[in-house]
Computed example of a mutant assay.
Amino acid sequence: MHPSQQPSTEFIKLLTNHQTALRGYIISLLPGCQDVNDVLQDTNVVLWEKMHSFEAGSNFQAWAFTIARNKVMQYWGQQKKLKRISLSESILDAIAEARKESRPELLENKLQALQSCLKILKQDERNLLHARYEQTESLQSYANKIGRSSASTRVSLHRIRQKLRSCVDLRLQWKGDTA
């Protein structure tokens, strides 16, 4: 790398400070997908390669989110070729536009609140969340494994999400950090 191409300290700080926001953005565009970390890594590679095209003082998050969106579109294209489920581009565009306005510090605070709230769940509730969001196992398969109907498991999942949403909202209110 030529000395004039060395990354600036400011760019490294921006890239590092926006990792949580970028990850959250990619998760919102790839709901329930196990490949989020791969897409984030691919996005970071492109950001690094294009660091000299970023104009200092401009909106880093908007620039990074545009690159992340392109990587997600590339991912969905690959999934479509492999005959896996894909998301329509219009839905992806709507989600991407809504997420562009997110504040990184709010996302970080929400993530911290969520991590705290997850700790207060019962073990069986955490197991259900793990099965639904971190494993490739279907809800029906998990319900069968624990001896419950898929309908009651779906209701339980809904109640857990409501409990987490309320807990996160309450924690953010305590911090005075609302969207």
Score class of each variant (00 low, 15 high):
22 L>F: 00
22 L>H: 00
23 R>N: 10
23 R>S: 08
23 R>E: 06
23 R>V: 03
23 R>D: 03
24 G>C: 10
24 G>A: 13
25 Y>I: 13
26 I>N: 08
26 I>M: 08
28 S>K: 12
28 S>I: 01
29 L>I: 08
29 L>K: 09
29 L>G: 14
29 L>C: 14
30 L>W: 01
30 L>Q: 06
30 L>C: 10
31 P>F: 03
31 P>N: 05
32 G>L: 04
32 G>M: 08
32 G>K: 11
33 C>H: 07
33 C>R: 14
33 C>M: 08
34 Q>V: 02
34 Q>W: 00
34 Q>K: 01
35 D>W: 00
35 D>Q: 10
36 V>E: 03
36 V>C: 04
37 N>D: 15
38 D>N: 14
38 D>V: 09
38 D>K: 10
38 D>T: 11
39 V>G: 08
39 V>Q: 06
40 L>V: 14
40 L>W: 02
40 L>M: 11
41 Q>L: 05
41 Q>V: 10
42 D>A: 15
42 D>T: 13
42 D>P: 09
42 D>W: 05
43 T>Y: 09
43 T>N: 11
43 T>V: 12
44 N>M: 14
44 N>E: 13
44 N>D: 08
45 V>W: 07
46 V>H: 14
46 V>K: 15
46 V>F: 11
46 V>A: 15
47 L>G: 10
47 L>A: 14
49 E>F: 02
49 E>N: 05
49 E>P: 00
49 E>T: 01
50 K>I: 04
50 K>N: 05
50 K>T: 00
50 K>C: 08
50 K>E: 12
50 K>Q: 14
52 H>R: 09
52 H>W: 03
52 H>M: 11
52 H>E: 10
52 H>L: 05
52 H>V: 00
53 S>N: 13
53 S>G: 09
53 S>C: 06
53 S>K: 13
53 S>Y: 10
53 S>A: 09
53 S>R: 13
54 F>I: 07
54 F>K: 02
54 F>M: 03
55 E>P: 00
55 E>M: 05
55 E>C: 04
56 A>K: 11
56 A>T: 07
57 G>V: 04
57 G>S: 02
57 G>Y: 01
58 S>W: 02
58 S>P: 04
58 S>Q: 06
59 N>R: 15
59 N>D: 15
59 N>C: 14
60 F>I: 06
60 F>N: 05
61 Q>T: 11
61 Q>K: 14
61 Q>C: 07
62 A>R: 11
63 W>V: 02
63 W>N: 03
64 A>I: 10
64 A>G: 09
64 A>E: 09
65 F>M: 04
66 T>V: 14
66 T>K: 12
66 T>W: 00
66 T>F: 01
66 T>N: 13
67 I>C: 03
68 A>D: 04
68 A>N: 05
68 A>H: 04
68 A>V: 03
70 N>W: 09
70 N>C: 05
71 K>D: 05
71 K>R: 15
